[in-house]
């Protein structure tokens, strides 16, 4: 039975393609009649730089089995520097997917020029196979995973990560203006540790949304040492994002503060 449904299952892949190169490359692929599997559904955007981590993570949260991002080759972006940012953001997305437990291989970034029709067909064929091997997305069935992906999504929207990734290029390239050029590797390290922190904090908020939870409970669900959880909670309380609720006996519990109607 399980096998049968496995056989019937076809990966659902969303493609975000930039208008000027990758979408045009897909067009040329069609014009040249290179064949590829039918699994990708393409959404056209003006530039790959439009694709924020939120768009990708939200789609994965909604159950997509894979996401394919297409842009112009580095240096060819119609908007000069758009795809440099795409590259940086994809790195962040992959880190967040790792944190959340979704295989980062479900996300793929490819540069396809408007003349690389055949390359486009190869990429789709290859990526479809890759996603097929990974199997159906577990997000829909696995509630725990879903909340982790939601946390990754939230983390990607935090001021710290967005500002860091947004400024990354300038910090590395134009450093000389401020006279302190940052070493890219060093900056990656800073971003990675910020990613981990923001993910864990978002996860705490996510988990404590529906019901108050204790530090110990959070630590167990998240598989994170309790002292670290506590440090996050202190930080979140300072930002007024989480509240301590009815300390029952000696174990305080925490509940996410929800503002307005959103989330």
């Amino acid at each position: 039975m399980a096998e049968a449904s496995q056989a019937q299952w076809e990966p659902k892949i969303i493609g975000f393609l930039c208008n000027w190169c990758s979408y045009a490359g897909a067009d040329l692929c069609g014009v040249s009649r290179y064949q590829y599997p039918t699994n990708v559904r393409a959404v056209r955007v003006m530039c790959s730089t439009r694709i924020s981590p939120h768009l990708v993570l939200d789609i994965l949260k909604a159950g997509a089995d894979g996401v394919l991002l297409g842009g112009c080759h580095i240096g060819d972006c119609h908007y000069i520097s758009g795809n440099y940012y795409t590259e940086k953001r994809v790195r962040l997305m992959k880190r967040l997917l790792e944190e959340s437990g979704v295989e980062p291989e479900r996300l793929r970034l490819e540069w396809v020029s408007a003349s690389e029709g055949e390359k486009f067909s190869k990429i789709v064929t290859d990526f479809t196979e890759q996603v097929r091997k990974l199997g159906p997305s577990k997000v829909k069935k696995d509630e725990k995973l879903r909340s982790r992906v939601a946390a990754a999504d939230d983390a990607s929207e935090t001021f710290r990560l967005k500002a860091l990734v947004g400024r990354e290029l300038n910090l590395v390239n134009k450093g000389n203006v401020y006279n302190n050029k940052l070493d890219p590797a060093e900056l990656d390290r800073i971003i990675d540790s910020a990613t981990e922190e923001e993910f864990e904090r978002s996860l705490i908020l996510e988990l404590s949304m529906s019901k108050p939870r204790s530090v110990k409970e959070l630590g167990e669900i998240m598989e994170v040492p309790t002292d670290k959880v506590l440090r996050h909670i202190v930080a979140l309380r300072q930002k007024n994002m989480i509240a301590m609720e009815h300390p029952e006996g000696f174990t305080p519990t925490y509940k996410t503060i929800v503002i307005g109607g959103e989330q």
């Binding site: 439009r50 908007y79 520097s81 940012y85 953001r89 967005k162």
Partner: peptide
Amino acid sequence: KGCGCCGATCPEGAITM
């Protein structure tokens, strides 16, 4: 030009296209 870079970057989610 509508590339959307600012929108994807804005840390406050204040920009849409």
